[in-house]
Design a protein around this nucleic acid. Structure first.
Lengths: 157, 157
DNA sequence: CCAATTTCAGTTTAACTGATATTA
DNA sequence: CTAATATCAGTTTAACTGAAATTG
């Protein structure tokens, strides 16, 4: 590609792709696979995301969940209400705090999210399949570090 | 965490996070940074995505763009119409194909997308900042391989 | 009173499905 | 006729903003 090109390079040839584009692309493809897979469980992806966070980090309030996934408390309110109505979580007041309602997975909720995680391992392997096991571990380690690093900066503000 | 836990592990302690959750989380945080940054250019992220793909791969039709980012042709139709109306791309019939309209960046379009890519490098570094330069190169290389691998599978179907 | 959380109500973005027209 | 593309029209998902109620 010449220094004066105008974005009309020949087919096949292209510039180094920006990382952010890669993440956006990865998200879109992975989302389409996930939506498809989770549909078997009649579970929308935003609800799965909420459940798997509680599974990984323990009971928390709707407001805390909202901060973790960077949506408004109102948006998370709808998501948590939906999984509560379905009996996947229960909410009880946190005695040590104000109005806070701690959402905890029910046995049904744990069973469902674990089944989903298990089923999604296939999708995960379709993504990681390009790498050998050693590379996979290293890749996940680096990815985790980057996400944590970015999360930390967002939460500073 | 015990084998009989019910997702109520103590604070700080948690299971290994699923990769797909990492990607979703990364997408959400990066999207919030990108939306914010691109707002300086009054450019919605889906429109930026469309422009940067043409920048990287050369002129292409709306239908080709749609396949590349996994949205319906209709959805991409609105996006391309918007950037066309703004004078960032022009479309001309492809003589060698049917109804196809090839979208090509205008000089304004090239200037805008390059300015965005440059500005977004800061966001990129906030993400990659957790890694040293050597790790960054390796990470992007592995990420590219994974995304290409998954894209290839999606396009098989 | 204040700050955090929850929730009601309406709005917007950005995708979707269905149907139709055009052209090699 | 078929297949790909483009586009008109309406729908849905999943976020958003604004405002109000609750509680330590």
């Amino acid at each position: 590609m010449t220094p004066t090109d105008r974005g009309d390079s020949a087919s096949g040839e292209h510039r180094r792709r920006p990382l952010l584009g890669l993440v956006l692309n990865a998200d879109r493809v992975i989302r389409s696979f996930m939506d498809e897979t989770l549909q078997e469980f009649s579970l929308p992806t935003p609800e799965y995301t909420c459940l798997v966070i509680i599974r990984n980090y323990g009971p928390m309030s709707s407001a805390e969940l909202a901060r973790r996934v960077f949506v408004t408390p109102q948006a998370m309110g709808y998501i948590i209400a939906s999984v509560e109505q379905r009996g996947l979580v229960v909410r009880h007041p946190d005695p040590s705090h104000g109005r806070k309602l701690l959402a905890r997975l029910t046995p049904d909720g744990v069973a469902l999210v674990d089944a989903c995680v298990d089923r999604l391992k296939e999708v995960e392997q379709r993504f990681l399949g390009a790498l050998n096991p050693r590379e996979q571990r290293y890749f996940i380690e680096m990815f985790t570090a980057c996400v944590d690093h970015l999360n930390a900066q967002r939460n500073e503000a």
